[in-house]
Structure formats: C-alpha cells, structure tokens
Simulated assay, not measured.
Amino acid sequence: MSATLIITNDFPPRPGGIQAFVHELATRRPAGSVVVYCSNPGRRWGDPTAFDVRQPFPVIRENTSVLLPTPGVLRRARRIARLEGCDSVLFGAAAPLGLMTEGMRRAGVERVVALTHGHETGWSALPGTRQALRRVGDQVDVLTYLGDYTRERVARAVSPAAAARMRCLAPGVDTDRFRPDAGGDEIRERHGLGGRPVVVCVSRLVPRKGQDTLIRAWPRVLADIPGAVLLLVGEGPYRRRLRALAARHGVEDSVVITGSVPSAELPAHYAAGDVFAMPCRTRNGGLDVEGLGIVYLEASATGLPVVAGDSGGAPDTVVEEETGLVVDGHWPGPTARALIRLLGDTTTATEMGERGRAWVERAWTWDVVSRRLDDLLTGA
C-alpha cells in the first residue's frame, strides 16, 4: 500500500481550525497509509506525546515550535519518507513548507499536494512572499483552496499553469456530532439561560472574529428582544477587552463568556443557541482575513441560522437568505438588524437552520472531503 507523509506546523494538541482540518484528514486516511511529521508546541496545550500515542498513525515531532524549510528539516523529512515508503506528500500549509517539494521528489516522492488557507492569501499580497508562493505553486502537483475567495487571491499570485492545477479542498463537518439534539439544554442550565433567546458565537477571542461587534450591537438587540443572551464560547487575548466593552455598554448581565471548552462539548454549545453569529472582518490591509470559517458550517449542521461577516471566504459558508445572512462586521448596525430579524422571526430562523443542515449533509461532510483528498493524492 502506498503511504502519504503529512508535513505540517498545524497539528493538535495545538488548537485551531487548520490543526483540526489536518488532523481529520490524517485520521480518515486508510489504516497504515499515513505518517505525520510536525513541529512540537511544547506543553502549552497539553502533553503532545500523550496525544501522539493515541493516534492510529505514527507522529514524528521535530524539537522546535515551528518547522521551516531548512536543510535539516528537509533531510529528516526525506529520511522519514524513505523509511516509511511514502510516495506522496501533503503539506498542511503550502507556505513556507511547500518550498521543500523538489527536495522531497529526490527522496522518491511522486505526488505532492499543498493546502492553502487564509494564511496564503496574506502571502499573496506582499512582493517577497508572493514570489515564494509562486515557487511553491510551480513545484507541487496541486494547490488546494478553501473557496472562491482563497482561489482568486492565490491564483493571482501563482503562475497560470499552477492556477490551472488548483483544486478545492475545504474542511468537512461531522454531522453525527453536530446536530440539533446535541445537548443544548444542559449548556443552558449550566449558565442559567433557561428559555431566553440565545445568540451563540464559537471562536477564539481575537479582534478579527468580531465578538466586539456583537457586544456593540447588543444594546440595540435587547431593545427589540428583551431578555436575549449573548453566549461567547472560546478563549483568547481579547477576553479582558470584551468584558470591559460589555460593562461600558451596560450589557454585562446578558453576555456570557464561557472560556475554553472541551472539544467534546462544542456541539452542545452550538445547540444551546437560537442563532449563530460571528461577524468577522478583514484587518491589517487584507493580511488578517478569514480563510473560510468552519464554525458557520458546524452551526448549520446543528440546525442554526447563521450570521457571518463578509471577511475573505466566510461568505462561501452561507447561502444568502437561505441558510443565513452575511453582514459587514466592522459596524454594529448591520449585525444588530440581522440578529433582531432572526430572533424575532422564529419561522424564518427555523427554516434557515433546516436548509443549512441539509446543505451541509449534501456538500460538506468528511466523507466527501476524504474522497476528494484521495483523488488529489492519487492523481485521479
């Protein structure tokens, strides 16, 4: 059986959407057909060794927090590929590790696929990194993209030949985990929410995600939907500022910040909401952008209507007016109006949630994603 070497900086126990994406791709490969070579985040997010021994495939960690395409890293990657009989390589992120492609081919690797995310769209915007991304595109067999936004941005940076070889590969959703009856009542009871209208946001607490926009919109929401609660699920450096912002707007009693929650409890936290909202926005002149936003699809699978920001690829996760609404996340007014509409019209909200789950079941499951990856790795 042929094997694939996954080379990545993005791997659990380090948290994040890309980490979860790469891990799911690895776990869904056939038994005995994958090896992971990755960086070592240390014990900040738990013991990586304890995590690694639970995986159904070998995980080899370099003793560094970041893998770079250095001669030493390339030598070890080539040695692993030879010892494990790997004839294909999957780079968890094209930039910068994809620059090792030619060296990996000299180790007998026949097929190379490199994933792109929001990170690579940032590389495509700057002259020096754009040239490096163009080199990666010329060397690999396939650059993947998450959706229309990332495809257009990356395609402008790479050669026409590389752009023609780009293929879509976005994260999937486990619809058995993320479902309407995932245990939302327990979360409501835990936080004393009762039967109050709840808007839930699941994300890291960082400026791009737009939790501050939700809080600034909240006084307007409460004026129309008295008793509503904003449930912010996640942890991050923005937490203290969000707390202060809620106090400044006089809504701290109706804003609940849960902090980090175990992965096993995420579906229940989605299910505790009536509407999902994350009004993300692009920052830093386009360098800080939402690549896709798997949380919107997980919310849709849970049966919630979604309110998404218009940053980067986030709109690719919403069928406008069918599964949710897209707003400008820089301003509280559009977000407030969207939330008031969905909280105040339960029939429309329910129908959007039902259509969203049906869409995810049809187009965004991990089975679909796994088949796509198999085709890319085999050249089908």
Rank of each mutant, 00 (worst) to 15 (best):
V198S: 01
P219Y: 01
P207C: 01
K209P: 03
R216A: 14
G210S: 09
P226T: 08
G192W: 11
G194D: 10
S203V: 10
I225F: 00
V199Y: 01
R216N: 10
R204P: 02
P219K: 05
A217E: 03
V221S: 01
D212L: 10
D224W: 14
T213V: 13
G210T: 00
A228S: 07
G210K: 00
D212F: 05
I215W: 02
V198G: 06
V202G: 07
S203N: 12
R204S: 12
A223N: 12
V202F: 07
L193C: 06
L222W: 11
T213H: 03
L205Y: 02
T213E: 06
R216E: 15
V202N: 09
L205R: 05
R190M: 10
I215Q: 06
V200W: 00
D224Q: 12
P197C: 03
W218Y: 07
R196M: 07
G227Y: 10
P226C: 08
P197E: 04
C201V: 05
S203L: 05
L193G: 08
L214I: 05
R204G: 14
G195L: 09
I225C: 13
G227I: 10
H191I: 12
P197M: 04
G210W: 00
E189R: 14
R190N: 07
P197H: 06
L214P: 06
